[in-house]
Design a protein around this nucleic acid. Structure first.
Lengths: 237, 237
DNA sequence: GCATATTTGTCCGTATGTATA
DNA sequence: CTATACATACGGACAAATATG
């Protein structure tokens, strides 16, 4: 957000009705900024001025500060005392941590999966969307469907806590993707693997599905970490 | 907090130096209220008035609202639109969810534990403190040391995300303990089991340690759930 | 290294709408 | 149903600390 010209005030009709319950301005404001971050509209390391953002979103400074506080606790923003907030700059350590968490949670989820679990519907639909998007070379949609697939895996646990943890971890990962050159191709080739994991899960072969997933995550981590290491140099305070 | 007479303003020298970095009034305020909740000074279902709490802690309502927002995201407070915040009332479902998360995270942590990991120091010290406290029948200290022990287990993962998740889950569990008649005796008999888990971990017998822990958690969950079910009836909106 | 300008941190006052007695 | 109390959200004010020239 170098310039403020291309941003809209916080919308009344929230984009994601599942997250932002209408009537909570702070939460809607946080959702707006969150979407700036995960779509790359606000880049890592970029400083967000209270006055500028408040004017852009047409909210008061107090309201904005509450939203900042929330996003800071989600590790999407970093506060420096008396120096404002900036978009978090992912480190290699944070990326490795994210994948460690994913392997633990998603692996356990698949190992304990029951074939008839309602969350398999989320997974099925995500695979379907991803395959269609891939055929149309719509990598953005394919990427979103990919993350939705893994959200479905976590949902197999039936745990609100794990769902929430995964949501924040997922947002952090998308922030990290923003550092990469062309993130689309990163998860594009994995559409087929997701389909196989789904098949195995529906067939009740949970151990095989978990093994396949673990291999997927190891490979994905390696790809992302490598891309991170060879990215253009950048510095952080 | 029916009356405000017995509360101090938010202290400059924070009680827990690891969490509250001095110079952040919102975080210190949240820490104060958090301690009210986990020590039972503020009881489940109790409403917290903005004006009253702000005056008690000698902070402005804006500052307090930021702290409320944080604690709401930690599931320690619940917001009802235009009706203020109240201390969360744990449900049986939330308690079961907490134990599900604990089994997953702590079990995985022990299975992948290396005997020389620095986190074993946390565990050793916690066991020592708990044993001494048990001999002196200081159940409060024993309980705190017990939770510290399990925090040490999670620390074996070397994952910031899991550490943070466990911190919030742990706070929620202490809130649930507040509903029980005499929570001290609940974890008192487990001091010996912790010591055995520690021994096994230090000896590199990670599978056995994990099995012992899982049994511990199943039994603890059963005890807590039973106490919850037979507690005095209470209602929630 | 220093003086200045800008921004954050915190507070207060107030208007409006909602829930509850 | 009315009235009161309170949460929501805004804007302005001031001190303190940081960033800039």
């Amino acid at each position: 957000m170098a310039t403020t010209a291309d941003a809209e005030p916080v919308s009344e009709t929230a984009a994601d009705p599942t997250e932002a319950k209408v009537g909570d301005l702070v939460e809607r404001t946080a959702a707006s900024i969150r979407s700036w971050i995960i779509t790359g509209k606000a880049r890592p390391g970029e400083r967000l001025s209270e006055k500028a953002v408040a004017e852009t979103l047409a909210v008061s400074r107090n309201t904005l500060r509450e939203a900042f506080r929330v996003l800071t606790h989600e590790n999407l923003l970093v506060r420096r005392p008396h120096a404002g907030v900036m978009v978090a700059v992912p480190t290699l350590a944070s990326i490795l941590d994210i994948y460690r968490v994913r392997r633990m949670i998603e692996g356990q989820a698949l190992r304990g999966a029951l074939p008839g679990h309602p969350a398999t519907d989320i997974m099925s639909q995500a695979v379907e969307t991803a395959e269609r998007a891939r055929d149309e070379k719509d990598w953005r949609t394919a990427g979103t469907a990919n993350m939705e697939f893994h959200r479905g895996i976590v949902a197999l646990c039936d745990s609100e806590h794990l769902d929430r943890l995964y949501a924040t971890v997922s947002a952090e990962l998308r922030l990290a993707f923003g550092l990469l050159a062309n993130p689309e191709y990163l998860h594009a080739p994995y559409v087929a693997r997701n389909a196989r994991i789904l098949e195995m899960t529906l067939a009740g072969e949970s151990a095989a599905a978990a093994a396949e997933l673990d291999d997927y995550l190891v490979q994905s981590e390696r790809t992302v970490a490598a891309a991170y290491s060879r990215r253009a140099s950048h510095e952080q305070a």
